[in-house]
């Protein structure tokens, strides 16, 4: 008999947690809390595989809770419930909470069940990895020298990237998605720095396909503007590692890129962890021919990483 995964629901509205409890108690060990503090108590005392938290709560916001949970229990998959578009909170939950998914209120029960199941399975299969607990960068795999790809027509010509990151990593520049694909085919890239649009094209599709095929490649998104819906997609469909709004301070960018690179090395060190980088299948038309052609062009890259791809 397999152990029941533990799921923790946090919302200041008791009716919400009661409902979620009813929904999940058959298959999970369900815990609940109506405040961030209560949730932290539970996380500290027992193993929690998945935490689903509301954003707006008295005392501690969902973002803060998830950021703390990440530190206390890095193996716990973190899901944020948002009922109210709060851009700053969402950006915070990407950069500090490193969350797995955003879920909009009101949710769809089936989708919620599927999401929690997926998260619980991922947690069960990965939380034993020692790499997860480590905040230190894993030593680079032998022979691997991952580089940085700057895919942004506005900043790629900026010599700063080369000057700043050059000593540590190879830095490549691309002006368009096509350029980027060429670089990705030929080079070992660990981190992609990009904007939401390059050369008039959305980068989200590329990032999603890239994440599907090569979850170890981390993305740092630098954008001038994004609404909450776009930010939601960045996480749910492309697992963007860091998000900053332009103009970005160099110090902040340095930290973001290095954190992304650390994640990249960690996932390369323990390929089982890449399941934690799984992206949601996007609905319908977005699985377009464009996505397929992107995927086919990216086929060759996998060999470099020496592990099988899941598709």
């Amino acid at each position: 008999m397999t152990i029941k995964p533990t799921v923790l629901f946090v919302d200041d509205e008791p009716h919400i947690v009661n409902l979620l409890k009813m929904m999940f108690r058959a298959d999970y060990e369900v815990m609940s809390a109506t405040s961030g503090e209560g949730a932290l108590d539970i996380v500290q005392t027992r193993k929690v595989h998945v935490i689903v938290s509301d954003q707006r709560m008295p005392g501690m916001l969902g973002t803060e809770l998830l950021a703390q949970v990440r530190k206390l229990s890095p193996g716990t998959m973190r899901i944020l419930l948002t009922g109210y578009s709060d851009l700053a909170a969402m950006v915070g939950s990407i950069n500090e909470g490193e969350i797995y998914r955003f879920v909009n209120k009101p949710w769809n029960n089936d989708e919620m069940r599927a999401l929690v199941r997926e998260a619980a399975e991922t947690a069960l299969s990965t939380d034993a990895s020692p790499a997860l607990a480590s905040e230190e960068a894993a030593p680079a795999a032998a022979g691997a020298d991952p580089g940085i790809l700057v895919l942004d027509e506005n900043v790629s010509q900026n010599g700063w990237f080369k000057d700043h990151f050059g000593p540590d990593f190879p830095v490549f520049a691309a002006q368009s998605i096509d350029d980027a694909l060429t670089v990705l085919e030929q080079r070992d890239i660990g981190v992609v720095i990009t904007d939401t649009k390059v050369g008039g094209e959305e980068t989200l599709n590329l990032l999603r396909v890239l994440k599907q095929q090569y979850p170890v490649v981390m993305t740092v998104m630098l954008t001038a503007q994004a609404d909450s819906d776009a930010v939601l997609k960045m996480i749910n469909q492309a697992q963007v590692c860091r998000l900053s709004f332009k103009p970005v301070k160099r110090g902040a960018l340095d930290i973001a890129v290095k954190a992304a690179m650390m994640h990249h090395r960690r996932y390369r060190a323990d390929p089982t962890l890449v399941r934690r980088q799984r992206v949601a299948r996007s609905a319908g038309h977005e699985e377009s021919s464009l996505a397929r052609s992107l995927a086919s062009r990216l086929k060759g890259i996998g060999r470099r990483f020496g592990f099988g791809l899941h598709s």
Binding site: G83, Y84, N109
Partner: peptide, 24 residues
């Protein structure tokens, strides 16, 4: 409107969840 949307959204979320569950 944003405030009211949020105020309504919370009960709406569990009413919807409730009804879905009831349907099951």
């Amino acid at each position: 409107v944003a405030g009211i949307a949020h105020e309504i959204n919370t009960p709406l979320a569990y009413v919807k969840g409730t009804i879905d569950l009831l349907a099951e």
